[in-house]
Amino acid sequence: MEILKNRRLWLGLGLLAGLIYFLTPVTAFAVTTDEITKTIGDFMTNGNGDNAVVNNFILITLLSVIPIILVMMTSFTRTIMVLSFVRNSLGTQQNPPNQVLLGLALFLTFFVMRPVYTDIYDQAIKPYQAQEISQEVVFERSEVRIKEFMYQQTRKKDLELFLDIADEKGKYPSYKEVPLTIMTPAFIISELRTAFSIGFLLFIPFLIIDMVVASILMSMGMFMLSPVMIALPFKLLLFVLVDGWYLVVESLVRSFQ
């Protein structure tokens, strides 16, 4: 009986608190249409609006787009895929960890893309900070420099594929006029093909070690012993003796030059 009374007491207190909350007036802060119109006008005007507001808006937009640009329009895709192939071919499962591979791929991307970013800064951002060019020219010069990098790494066959699908083949005399919506997917599938080609070459020596170890174990009648476990030390030893990480990173960096 006491438990039932306590439940009724708590239920009554909860209903009372809810009624007090809903019946208490709450102050609402509204934005007037004049403020909205002024803000939109600041963004639409060129030079008459608040430059700080416009710059903050552009900065927030760029921050939301940077991850996509980093993954799809730089050397990051090929780099992270090749590093993942190295780990899978060794059979070390989670070693190196994902954080290490992502960090290495990120810094290798910064290293490979450094000439591109330097040119963008010298040709676009620096003149804009000196108020020598407009924002439109900044985006145009940056886009052209990124297109130049992607065009150098893209197969003509892949680029012609998307131009043919878009029914725009022969429309653009230079890569500078090709839209990013066509250049980017062509660049991505070219990067995927190159990464898979490198991954195939990485798997061959380790696959040979697995086959040799499996054949030896079968000839000795050790069917219950995992060949992967026995082959792992030999694969690690081979990778260390040939200085594998040096060769992989060197091949990756030089493949973009």
Rank of each mutant, 00 (worst) to 15 (best):
165 I>Q: 13
74 T>P: 07
157 K>D: 08
129 Q>P: 06
83 L>K: 08
108 L>S: 03
116 V>H: 08
141 R>I: 09
133 I>N: 00
154 T>A: 05
99 Q>S: 15
166 A>T: 10
130 A>R: 14
168 E>P: 10
167 D>F: 09
120 I>M: 15
82 V>F: 00
63 L>D: 04
170 G>F: 07
100 V>S: 13
163 L>S: 11
135 Q>W: 13
104 L>C: 10
94 Q>G: 11
133 I>Q: 02
142 S>E: 04
80 I>S: 04
77 T>G: 07
140 E>I: 03
82 V>Q: 02
63 L>Q: 06
76 F>M: 03
139 F>G: 03
130 A>M: 09
116 V>E: 02
128 Y>K: 12
95 N>K: 13
81 M>W: 04
67 P>G: 09
157 K>W: 06
71 V>N: 03
122 D>V: 14
82 V>L: 02
127 P>C: 05
79 T>P: 04
64 S>T: 12
107 F>D: 05
93 Q>S: 11
70 L>W: 06
100 V>M: 13
138 V>R: 12
87 R>S: 07
90 L>D: 01
75 S>D: 01
65 V>G: 09
143 E>W: 04
129 Q>D: 05
136 E>W: 08
114 R>K: 14
107 F>I: 08
91 G>V: 00
90 L>N: 03
78 R>T: 01
140 E>H: 08
169 K>T: 13
88 N>K: 11
105 A>W: 00
162 F>G: 04
99 Q>M: 14
79 T>W: 01
67 P>H: 07
108 L>E: 04
94 Q>A: 14
99 Q>T: 13
65 V>C: 13
96 P>H: 03
78 R>K: 13
122 D>F: 14
104 L>Q: 03
148 E>C: 05
83 L>C: 06
119 D>Y: 12
79 T>V: 14
91 G>F: 03
122 D>L: 15
156 K>L: 11
64 S>V: 15
151 Y>M: 08
64 S>K: 13
138 V>M: 06
145 R>L: 02
74 T>Y: 06
88 N>T: 04
161 L>R: 10
136 E>K: 11
128 Y>Q: 11
122 D>E: 15
92 T>M: 11
155 R>S: 07
83 L>E: 06
97 P>W: 00
119 D>A: 15
121 Y>L: 12
159 L>W: 06
116 V>L: 12
104 L>S: 05
90 L>R: 03
85 F>E: 00
119 D>I: 13
127 P>A: 05
89 S>V: 05
84 S>P: 00
157 K>G: 07
68 I>N: 07
88 N>S: 12
137 V>W: 00
170 G>H: 02
110 F>E: 01
144 V>I: 12
